[in-house]
Computed example of a mutant assay.
Amino acid sequence: MRRFIGAAAVFLTAALALSACGGGSDPLSATPSSAPASSGGASAKVVVGSFNFPESVLLGSIYAQALTAKGVQVEEKPNIGSREVVYDQIKSGGLTVLPEYIGSLLAFLDKNSTAKTKEEILAGLTAKLPPELEVLDPAEAQDNNSLTVTKETAGKYGLSTISGLVKVAKDFTVGGPPEFKKRQEENFKQVYGLEFKEWKSTGDTTADAIKSGTVQVGNVFTTDPKIVLDDLVALQDDKNAFGSDNITPIVYKPGVNDTVVSTLNAISAKLDTATLLSLMKRISVDKDDPPAVAKDWLTQNGLV
């Protein structure tokens, strides 16, 4: 939900730890690259940004380290904010590369889109993105939005699908990121006929809020290790309210060259959902540093 994506889905402790990665730079003061990189070299600086949740910070670090290994001059701006802030930055050229989620990005750009499959969503993005922006090859890896409940709640009310929430939503408080209600309330009404009793902003602690009973259902990303660790149940999106959310780099075209594009596409070719879940476990559960996790994965896959 990333978002519509932006996003996006993890733990408060991980988020707090990663927020320090943002340094003192002001994302709103970023300026476009001074000149596009030449087709053969990488003389212009490439600015790699990320959203304000741990998975995006990890992906940004993977992109930045891989590009640096190819001789590209890179500046990293991690943990910037939500899509509402970050999209304007890459559109203006203040950022050059950003890890994105295709379904959430299209929903952000076209609130009337009915595209659900990867192919439909990519076609929609081609039509809706401004000419200065381009999505590169999508990874097999997806981090979809979900509506998630405890195992006990699922058993008590016989819940396995989002459609099943219709009979109980009026008695349920739903939680998610601060922008969750704005992005999803009308979508849930139109697709499922859902109207919840109350909406709460639970941010990166949504899984914890579900477990504690602060909310009865919440927006948790499907690569969040807490779904497994806390024995939560991600309800099946049986009417495809969220759509496919493959991870893909989006680039500011005047600021990238062939080296940048081929390096980022090589990353997408090797990144799948199971791998992403294992990487996020290292960050969220084992408390490993995201740049170290990124470097390990890049080294293991021959990308640095």
Rank of each mutant, 00 (worst) to 15 (best):
8 A>F: 03
122 L>F: 02
284 S>P: 03
31 T>S: 13
259 T>A: 10
217 V>H: 01
84 E>Q: 07
57 V>P: 14
299 T>D: 02
218 G>K: 05
158 G>H: 11
199 W>C: 05
178 P>Q: 10
268 S>G: 14
161 T>E: 07
10 V>L: 10
225 P>V: 00
292 A>I: 11
3 R>C: 04
53 F>Y: 02
133 L>Q: 12
183 R>P: 02
167 K>Y: 06
197 K>A: 13
165 L>T: 04
153 T>K: 15
23 G>A: 00
94 G>S: 03
267 I>S: 03
19 S>C: 00
273 T>G: 06
50 S>I: 03
30 A>T: 14
296 D>T: 14
85 V>S: 06
228 V>E: 11
136 L>T: 14
135 V>N: 13
144 N>W: 04
75 E>Y: 02
25 S>A: 13
20 A>T: 11
4 F>H: 12
71 G>M: 04
150 T>E: 02
11 F>Y: 12
181 K>A: 00
12 L>Q: 10
4 F>R: 13
72 V>S: 12
133 L>K: 15
16 L>R: 09
276 L>R: 01
225 P>W: 00
29 S>Y: 10
210 I>D: 10
181 K>C: 01
111 K>T: 10
162 I>S: 03
133 L>W: 12
19 S>H: 02
11 F>I: 11
277 L>W: 03
119 E>F: 15
65 Q>N: 11
296 D>A: 10
165 L>I: 04
72 V>E: 11
272 D>A: 11
17 A>N: 07
69 A>H: 00
13 T>W: 05
294 A>V: 10
